[in-house]
């Protein structure tokens, strides 16, 4: 089997145990709900955007180690960045998780998020890692309807 240590890296476990920015945000400018039908995980994402800049970002909900750590690290990666920067970062992240094993993903550009590269060895878990990002997209679009990973 693919090595479990590739999936459950220490950084990921650390964010699972102590998620960063996991709280509600009463003054959010936008929120969105995400739902993974496979495992029942639910996440609510809060964004405070000012002049195109993500001034604050947080999440609540219950999920598996991978989705919780992904949400936590996503909020760290995006706080202070512009909304315009979020989309290419998600595309890089998604490519890393879904590219064939013989293709080297651009780990450098992903910085700390590269720690999720082991997830691509576990295809059924990719949606766990992308749920927070899909939810982010919904929040950016300011959609009210919950998104799913389908």
């Amino acid at each position: 089997m693919s090595d479990l240590r590739d999936l459950y890296q220490q950084t990921i476990l650390d964010h699972t145990r102590k998620p960063r920015n996991k709280h509600e945000m009463p003054d959010a400018t936008s929120t969105a709900d995400g739902h993974n039908r496979l495992c029942g995980d639910k996440i609510r994402l809060f964004l405070k955007v000012n002049a195109g800049i993500i001034e604050d970002i947080s999440f609540t909900g219950n999920g598996c180690a991978i989705s919780t750590a992904s949400a936590s690290m996503m909020t760290e990666a995006l706080k202070g960045k512009s909304v315009a920067e979020a989309q290419p970062l998600f595309e890089l992240f998604h490519t890393m998780l879904t590219s064939p094993m013989d293709q080297e993903p651009d780990l450098e550009a992903l910085n700390k998020l590269a720690v999720f590269s082991g997830v691509r060895e576990f295809p059924v878990r990719v949606k766990c890692a992308t749920l927070p990002w899909h939810t982010l997209q919904a929040a950016i679009k300011n959609q009210d309807a919950p998104v799913t990973t389908e």
């Binding site: 459950y8 029942g40 219950n62």
Partner: peptide, 30 residues
């Protein structure tokens, strides 16, 4: 405690043990 069923499922699968994790098509029960 503090471990999501999905993570349990993935790790025990690595040991050759196949179990189901999720809501088992019983969301009202969950």
């Amino acid at each position: 405690e503090n471990i999501h069923p999905h993570d349990i499922g993935t790790i025990v699968d690595g040991e050759g043990v196949a179990i189901r994790t999720g809501h088992h098509c019983c969301q009202p029960l969950m």
